[in-house]
C-alpha cells in the first residue's frame, strides 16, 4: 500500500492509491498532498484504479483535503472508482462534493 504523486504536463498532480486508503495510512496521503499544495500545486486528481478499499477515515481525509485545496483556489477530483467504491461515495453522499470521472484522462481533460 502506497501513494504515488506525479505531475502531468499541465501541472495537474495525479495521486495514485495502491492498495487501501484507511485510518492507518491516511496521514501519509494528507501530508504528501499538502506538501504538493504548499509547493504550488492547485489541480489534483486522486486515481483509485489500483485501490481495493477505502474506509470512513479515508473518505474523511479526501473531504478535508478537498476543502483545503478549494480554499487555495484549487480543485481535487477523483477517478478510477470501481463499482463498490462508487457506491460508497454515493451512499455517503460524497459523490455530491467531488467531481468523479471514470479515468484519469477524463479527469485531466476536465480541468
Amino acid at each position: 500500500m502506497s501513494f504515488t504523486l506525479r505531475k502531468d504536463k499541465h501541472s495537474v498532480v495525479v495521486v495514485g492509491v495502491d492498495g487501501q486508503l484507511i485510518v492507518g495510512n491516511r496521514q501519509e496521503l494528507k501530508q504528501k498532498v499538502l506538501d504538493a499544495l504548499e509547493g504550488g500545486g492547485r489541480k489534483f486528481v486522486v486515481d483509485f484504479t489500483k485501490t481495493g478499499y477505502i474506509d470512513s477515515s479515508g473518505l474523511g481525509v479526501l473531504v478535508s483535503l478537498s476543502k483545503k485545496i478549494r480554499e487555495q483556489g484549487g480543485d481535487l477530483r477523483l477517478c478510477g472508482l470501481n463499482e463498490d467504491l462508487q457506491t460508497l461515495f454515493e451512499l455517503t453522499k460524497l459523490d455530491t462534493l467531488f467531481a468523479i470521472t471514470r479515468t484519469s484522462e477524463e479527469a485531466l481533460a476536465a480541468f
Partner: peptide, 12 residues
C-alpha cells in the same frame, strides 16, 4: 455534516 472529516464510520 457532509463536509466534516470524521463521523462516517458507523454509517458506512
Amino acid at each position: 455534516r457532509l463536509e466534516l472529516e470524521d463521523g462516517r464510520g458507523l454509517f458506512v
